[in-house]
């Protein structure tokens, strides 16, 4: 247990029902999941299974109704700069340039100005955006915005990087190239990454382990070790037998959950 960087310990999260819309919703129930230091863990699950809730709890933006979330053995009590979140919709400040956005977390950390400038330049370079420092978000493409967001989260040097479907809004080619970039950055920095997605291919491609969630209430159904051999050596790792095997494995696990989720939605529609 003590070897886990992050531990979800029998976590439950209940949202009180909206006024007039019936009872409370249990998003997560008795969820236990450990993340090892420096590992790239992908959480995959059907939509509405509470993946994002999981991340909110870890980020300290929400508190569990029961159980606890531990980082380095200490319970999470609130947000902190030891965990960086990358959101699907980038969440860049539109009135700040790329550099200004990357500097944002550093200001929160209270870094002196000169050191800030150095770190900003370094991290823009890390995500391949040198020369775009003075651009405003509306002047950048979706992929570039997400690079800025990643640079911003890395710049204040968190131990853990939490990513909430960060590439879901991007086109396929941009997504592929950003996935490669992310793996490279992960290897270069040695951060612990928790990556949330609903894409099976993305999960197999990025994850060294993949946690499959059940439909609502979310639990961990199974954690799968992804063994693809030497990924660098392979020309097209997505078309190898090992990749296909893992993809099918996860697809099978998810199929029942997706069905369950759909029938639950149908049930709700009939009742409501």
């Amino acid at each position: 247990m003590s070897t886990d960087k992050i531990l979800f310990d029998r976590v439950r999260k209940v949202f009180p029902g909206r006024r007039g819309a019936g009872g409370a919703v249990t998003a997560l129930d008795d969820l236990t999941l450990g993340v090892r230091p420096g590992e790239f863990l992908v959480v995959v699950g059907p939509s509405g299974c509470g993946k994002s809730t999981l991340l909110d709890l870890l980020g300290g933006l929400a508190t569990p109704s029961d159980g606890q979330v531990l980082v380095d053995g200490r319970p999470v009590t609130g947000p902190g700069l030891d965990r960086g979140i990358v959101f699907q919709q980038y969440a860049l400040l539109p009135w700040r340039t790329a550099a200004g956005n990357v500097a944002f977390g550093l200001e929160a950390k209270g870094l002196p100005r000169r050191e800030r400038a150095e770190r900003v330049a370094h991290h823009l370079e890390l995500v391949g955006l040198t020369g775009f420092a003075d651009r405003y978000p509306h002047e950048l493409s979706g992929g570039m915005k997400q690079r800025v967001a990643i640079a911003r989260s890395l710049a204040y040097d968190p131990d853990v990087l939490l990513m909430d479907e960060p590439f879901a809004a991007l086109d396929a080619q941009t997504r592929d190239s950003l996935q490669d970039e992310l793996v490279r950055i992960w290897q270069a920095t040695g951060k612990t990454v928790v990556f949330i997605t609903h894409g099976i291919d993305e999960a197999v491609y990025l994850g060294r382990r993949v946690a499959v969630m059940t439909s609502r209430p979310g639990r961990i159904k199974q954690v799968i070790d992804i063994e693809l051999g030497d990924r660098q050596a392979e020309e097209d790792v997505r078309s190898t037998d090992a990749f296909r095997h893992h993809r099918h494995q996860i697809w099978t696990l998810l199929r029942d959950e997706v069905r369950a989720a759909q029938s639950a939605v149908r049930e709700e529609a009939r009742v409501g």
Binding site: G59, G60, L61, G78, P79, G80, L81, R83, G84, I85, F87, Q89, A91, L93, F104, G105, A108, Y156
Partner: peptide, 14 residues
């Protein structure tokens, strides 16, 4: 104000 910006800033412990 975009609630996502607020969430993002809160996640950085502001």
């Amino acid at each position: 104000v975009d609630p996502l910006l607020v969430r993002s800033a809160r996640s950085m412990g502001l």
